[in-house]
Design a protein around this nucleic acid. Structure first.
Ligand code: FES
Ligand code: FES
Lengths: 144, 144
DNA sequence: TTTATTTCGGATAAATTTATCCTATTTATG
DNA sequence: CATAAATAGGATAAATTTATCCGAAATAAA
């Protein structure tokens, strides 16, 4: 469904959000430990999230990654997925045709579109806040 | 969403079905041309579909790939996807946790499960027949 | 201003997926 | 039986994704 990079990116953003509620910045090292991901690879993905304005980075001593508190409820899962995997999953053809075109559809178009649109809808309506609260409340987990 | 191999496999099965209605067998060469896929790679995928009893192969002169007419309406998209990509897409965690476990869920579990179950449902209720008829009727296409 | 800390970014390596090539095996037919 | 036509399957290569390593740049604090 999503690439590994995207899975790590989503989990990293969620973890950063939970820490940002407490006003804390986190390092790639801590993030990788908490979400069970390879550290250097995770750092690369974080750079991408920074460039796409999903999270904020502060360089130098006492630096780290954070998200402004008031941004946590604004960031949608869709933005993170799009930043890392692009929009192929939202607009691409399920059977890999060059593009999904109503006027030249693949044989599974009608069926696939329904699911794809529901996925899109879910991602666009799910906020980082909801996900982070699931972690803070202890009802969900970021690893094993 | 699906691997390239799976996309080719689905399209190949659909094409074989359309030909099987006419009692014709088809070669990997013809299949690859009609679905716009690399021939040798497609042949490999066909072997996999044969082993998983999605399509039938006849070796030797006048051989080729076919599907029994009465099987076309029995084969579900889900069987093809499972044969090639496995069942990760049906039962795996959207955020890549070792397994999707209600008792140890990832933060997106509830949201993701709804979409994943709808995808599963769609794949399990879509037959090769429906898809092949979209091609035969000219309302859908297998390439460009 | 020096030092310690931390993200950034390029180069590279490992693993997986996608793709190609060539030979073996099977089978219908003359 | 010999031959031609076709799928099966192993070996290998190319491309992409995943992962690692290391030095550069930025920043706070002594
Ligand atoms: S053309 Fe394939 S999903 Fe729209
Ligand atoms: S645990 Fe992640 S989808 Fe169920």
């Amino acid at each position: 469904m999503f690439s590994k990079a995207c899975e790590y990116g989503i989990k990293a953003a969620i973890f950063i959000a939970t820490k940002s509620y407490e006003g804390l910045r986190v390092s790639p090292k801590e993030i990788a430990e908490k979400i069970n991901s390879p550290q250097a690879f995770t750092a690369k993905i974080l750079q991408s999230l920074v460039r796409h304005h999903v999270v904020n980075s502060i360089k130098g001593a006492h630096g780290g990654f954070e998200i402004q508190k008031d941004r946590i409820s604004e960031v949608k899962l869709a933005q993170i997925v799009k930043a890392i995997d692009g929009d192929k999953i939202y607009v691409g053809c399920g059977l890999g045709m060059e593009k999904c075109d109503e006027n030249h559809p693949c044989p599974a178009h009608d069926k696939f579109k329904i699911v794809r649109d529901e996925l899109k809808n879910m991602l666009e309506n799910t906020t980082l806040e909801e996900l982070a609260l699931n972690i803070k409340s202890g009802t969900a987990f970021l690893k094993t």
